[in-house]
Amino acid sequence: MANPQWKGVYPALLTPFHADESIDEAMFIKNLRAQIDAGVDGVIIGGSLGEASTLLNEEKIQLLQVAKKTAGPDFPIILNIAESTTKAAVAFAKAATGAGADGFMLLPPMRYKSDDEETVTYFKAVANATPRSIMIYNNPVDYKIEVTLDMFASLAACENIQAVKESTRDVSNVTRMKNRFGDRFKILCGVDTLALEELCLGADGWIAGLVDAFPRETVAIYRLIKAGRLAEALSIYRWFLPVLELDIHPKLVQYIKVAATLTDIGSPHVRAPRLPLQEEELYRVTKIVEDALACRPQLPDYLSIN
């Protein structure tokens, strides 16, 4: 088992499909190997970008097992838990723990907008069902439930709740969390277009999206910032920003799959109800990525940075 340290770059992996919507294991492995070679610190399976809403839990376990076989025992593989009931979330946490998951990203209850007490109780029930490390996904913009500082204070009693994916879009939350809790919770930015700012404010890591198409550039930005080489990181980030903005659109899955296809580590196929991009929209997204590829920056030897 690889214990996640919750720092560095963790790609929210895409789930590649064939045209018939079956899982494309070969492409999944190709992208995973590109991420590992680029220097990421772990990966997340079955998140929003992984089309969690269209995956069976059995398929998430399938991808977990493929990833563990490909990456080896010392590389953290994190599974996403996104369920509508506490019973289902607890059952999946237990099953995935038994199947070898190294940790979990945990969303609030789906569909029902639980109040603060209900949300905390749900998180605690899942945390008590597994010894594995857990990162809470705080994304009130998309999931309508905010995990407040007082809620995190209640969750601090659960030792295996160790991190937060910070996706509130309020960069000040990094400082609020650090002021209130010190290093009790690792903080990982979950919005590509805010990553540089939050890393500079002290975030410990980056749950990245466009890393699925550009792994080396993503890891380079992170390592350069943490090494204090901000000017170099900023130069890459400014080049990257038009592409990173594909991460903050309702069709981020389709957009990032187009990007990964153009960098030859992905495919455009999605599962219904999502539909592939067509005509003007496909042209627009393709042009954004192709414009970036036409002036792709030369990267420093970022892998040598400790």
Score class of each variant (00 low, 15 high):
Ile23Gly: 06
Pro250His: 06
Gln278Thr: 08
Ile29Leu: 12
Val43Glu: 06
Thr54Gly: 03
Val171Leu: 12
Leu275Trp: 07
Arg238Phe: 14
Gln35His: 13
Ala2Ser: 15
Pro273Val: 06
Val9Gln: 10
Gly8Ala: 08
Leu56Met: 07
Gly47Ala: 11
Leu224Glu: 03
Arg111Glu: 05
Ala213Pro: 11
Ala129Asn: 10
Asp264Glu: 14
Gln62Tyr: 08
Ser84Gly: 11
Val258Pro: 09
Gly266Asp: 00
Glu245Asn: 12
Ile77Ser: 03
Trp6Val: 10
Ala19Gly: 04
Leu79Met: 13
Arg238Lys: 15
Ala157Val: 14
Lys69Val: 01
Val40His: 02
Phe152Ser: 04
Val9Tyr: 01
Leu64Ile: 09
Thr85Ala: 08
Arg229Asp: 01
Ala91Lys: 04
Asp212Ser: 15
Pro109Ala: 06
Ala195Arg: 04
Ser22Asn: 12
Pro140Ile: 05
Ala259Tyr: 09
Asp102Glu: 07
Thr175Trp: 04
Asp102Gln: 11
Thr148Asn: 10
Asn31Ile: 12
Glu25Val: 15
His249Ala: 12
Ile136His: 06
Asp37Phe: 07
Glu198Phe: 07
Ala208Glu: 10
Arg238Ala: 14
Pro273Ile: 01
Arg238Cys: 14
Ser53Phe: 13
Ala93Leu: 01
Thr70His: 01
His18Phe: 12
Ala233Gln: 04
Gly228Leu: 04
Asn80Ser: 14
Leu55Ser: 03
Met177Glu: 05
Glu59Ser: 05
Val174Met: 13
Pro73Glu: 08
Gly72Asn: 13
Trp6Asp: 03
